[in-house]
C-alpha cells in the first residue's frame, strides 16, 4: 500500500495522541484514584425501597471517623433527603437509586455526577474539604416537571456539624404551687461523643446546661421550676441544642389536672407540646382563684 511519508508521520502522531489520551485518563484512575461508578453496590427494586434498610429512610449516616454514607432516593420530581447535610473535611459515599424512572444526580460546579436508574444503586465517594452550599439537580429528562427537580447539599464547617435530635417532655399545665418538671432528651446520631449546651427558657427564667452525649446514644436533661416563681397564667418555654429547637406553653393554674411527666427515651416519638391554639382558654376556665 502506498502511503505518503507525511501521512505516515501523521499516522504516528495520531497514535501518540490516542495513547496520550488513554494514558491521561489512566493516570486519573490509578494515580489520582478517580473511581468510576460501577457495579459494586447491590441493586434494589423500587418496590423494595420502603423495606430496604439502606433506602427506607433516605439519610446521612456516620460510618467512621470523618466517614459518612448518604442514601439518596430520586423520584419524580424530588430528591430525598433534602437538604443533604454533611460536614467539611469528610469522606462521603453517596448511594443513589430511583423509585420510578431514570434520573440524574448532579452537583453543578463539582464533578459529582451520576445516573439514578431504577433497580440499580450508584455508589460514589467524594471528599469534601471545604464548607459550602451546592445545588443538586436531576440532569436526565424524567417527565413533564423535570426542570423542577432540585435539591441541595450543604457542607457545614466540621465544628458546626451535628446529628443531634431533641425531644422535650413537659406538662401542659400544673396546679399553682406544684413543681414543673421539664425533660429534654438529646440524642446524638454521630459515632463520636458529642459535647453541647442545652438552653432552656421557661417564662422569664433561663438556664443553661452542658451535656456530653456518647456516640449513637442519648442523654436526658431535666429542669425543675417552682410554679410559684412563674405565677399563674400561660408561660412559653423553649429548649434548644445545636440547631434543634422545641417550644411550647405551660399553664399554671390552681387545678390539679396535671399531666404526668413520662421520661422520654430514645425511640419514642417526638411529642409536640404546643397547646391547641383553637382553645387557648382551657386552662383558665373552671374554678377561679380563691
Amino acid at each position: 500500500m502506498r502511503i505518503h511519508t507525511y501521512e505516515k508521520l501523521w499516522l504516528a502522531g495520531s497514535f501518540v495522541l490516542i495513547v496520550g489520551f488513554i494514558v491521561t485518563v489512566t493516570y486519573g484512575s490509578v494515580g489520582l484514584g478517580i473511581d468510576m461508578i460501577g457495579e459494586e453496590a447491590d441493586g434494589v427494586s423500587p418496590d423494595e425501597i420502603s423495606s430496604d434498610e439502606r433506602f427506607s429512610e433516605p439519610r446521612v449516616e456516620q460510618v467512621g471517623e470523618n466517614e459518612y454514607e448518604v442514601y439518596v432516593v430520586a423520584m419524580t420530581f424530588i430528591f430525598q433527603p433534602d437538604p443533604i447535610e454533611v460536614p467539611a473535611n469528610s469522606e462521603v459515599t453517596f448511594y443513589v437509586t430511583s423509585r420510578d424512572v431514570i434520573h440524574g444526580f448532579e452537583v453543578p460546579g463539582t464533578n459529582i455526577n451520576s445516573m439514578a436508574i431504577p433497580g440499580q444503586v450508584a455508589e460514589l465517594t467524594v471528599e469534601f474539604d471545604e464548607p459550602g452550599t451546592y445545588g443538586v439537580i436531576c440532569n436526565e429528562y424524567c417527565g413533564p416537571q423535570h426542570h423542577t427537580m432540585e435539591g441541595s447539599l450543604v457542607v457545614t464547617p466540621e465544628w458546626e456539624f451535628s446529628q443531634t435530635e431533641l425531644e422535650v417532655d413537659a406538662p401542659e399545665s400544673v396546679a399553682q404551687g406544684d413543681e414543673i418538671d421539664l425533660t429534654a432528651t438529646v440524642s446524638n446520631g454521630l459515632l463520636e461523643t458529642h459535647e453541647s449546651t442545652v438552653n432552656v427558657t421557661i417564662g422569664s427564667q433561663t438556664t443553661e446546661q452542658s451535656i456530653t452525649v456518647d456516640g449513637e446514644s442519648s442523654e436526658n436533661v431535666s429542669v425543675t421550676v417552682d410554679s410559684d416563681e412563674l405565677g399563674p397564667g400561660e408561660h412559653d418555654w423553649t429548649v434548644s441544642v445545636d440547631d434543634q429547637e422545641e417550644s411550647g406553653t405551660i399553664t399554671v393554674g390552681n387545678e390539679t389536672d396535671t399531666t404526668e411527666s413520662v421520661p422520654a427515651s430514645v425511640g419514642t416519638e417526638t411529642v409536640s407540646v404546643t397547646m391547641n391554639p383553637a382553645d387557648p382558654t382551657r386552662a383558665s376556665r373552671g374554678v377561679g382563684y380563691p
Binding site: P108, I137, C138, E140, H146, H147
Partner: peptide, 16 residues
C-alpha cells in the same frame, strides 16, 4: 460549570 442539558428551565434556586 454544570448547566444541564434536556431541561425546559435550567434556572434553579442556586447560582451557577
Amino acid at each position: 460549570f454544570g448547566v444541564p442539558r434536556r431541561t425546559a428551565e435550567p434556572q434553579y434556586s442556586f447560582e451557577y
